[in-house]
Design a protein around this nucleic acid. Structure first.
Lengths: 163, 163
DNA sequence: TTATTTGCAAATCGTTTGCACCTTA
DNA sequence: TAAGGTGCAAACGATTTGCAAATAA
């Protein structure tokens, strides 16, 4: 039994809830991914392994995983709720590629320190914070540059042929 | 005519759209607020002044204001889309009180600089970024402290009377 | 006159809930 | 056996869309 499974079991028992095959499977599939899955994403993966599991159970179990401290809800602003691993995972922020959707995690102690200082200046007690940088990732920038070069080659070639 | 109204009119004409009484009113009401309104909030305010305007028109006009650069969509993660003034407004971030919902705007050049540096480190081209700090505001913290003190007074008073 | 806009109602989408049946402790 | 859990279908709430009637250019 992995540490995560133990944490989940402990949470379940502390709350007087019950261990079920569905919950075990959903946790298992969740732990096997390293993405920022939406409930629907996870449902599809779980459904592949046991098509009798319903969407509702996945929604409810993700809530449970969040309560147990194993998952963290993240709203990227696309209307979906995403979940990422949270157990023993350091706090971090996200860069999201608006072209390909890739998510890059990053952490900066300075950033954290300044945020705390800004909060303190407003006598604000921080519960959580969320930083999202949206833009174009290195791969997509390279692809874009290549596409431009390629267009240029075609242009100059056709200029030559019609000269 | 205010500068904002001119910007709106220019945008409308450039797009081959039409100026209407509803759009004028919605812009006017929007400009008179300094909050982070949801579409529903704005609808209620507009409705008070002209009850013939429909919700749909408010939704559509807010989209238009965002395109014209007069409003900015902000998702705080409460499921609603909020809009704030954007024209000639400097970029800023938000602290949101989880108790009373108050929104504090703040800006830190250092924060911006570090974000850009983090992006550069990942060869990431920033399009926009969003920082949200959630916690308890100064007022709510004070109220909480007072409530505690008051509870204590009652407790010690009743202890005295039953002694 | 003609393309655009309007308000309504219906549709949509992610998520939640009510409920009868099933399972765990 | 009692407390919980499940899957389905229906309900939900914010937003969007289809449409026929109204309006600006």
């Amino acid at each position: 039994m992995t540490e995560e499974q133990e944490v989940f079991l402990a949470h379940i028992q502390k709350q007087g809830l019950k261990r079920t095959a569905q919950r075990d499977l959903i946790l298992d599939v969740f732990l096997r991914t390293e993405e920022h899955l939406s409930s629907e994403d996870l449902y599809r993966l779980v459904h592949k392994e046991d098509s009798s599991v319903g969407q509702t159970t996945v929604y409810r179990t993700l809530k449970l995983l969040a309560e147990a401290g194993l998952a963290r809800e993240v709203r990227f602003g696309d209307g979906l709720t995403h979940y990422e691993h949270h157990y023993k995972h350091q706090h971090h922020d996200h860069m999201i590629c608006s072209n390909c959707g890739k998510i890059i995690e990053f952490y900066s102690a300075e950033l954290e320190a300044i945020q705390d200082a800004m909060a303190a200046r407003h006598k604000f007690e921080v519960e959580q914070h969320l930083l999202r940088i949206i833009g174009i990732c290195a791969d997509c920038r390279r692809a874009k540059r290549n596409a431009e070069k390629s267009r240029e080659r075609i242009r100059s070639a056709s200029a030559r042929s019609t000269r």
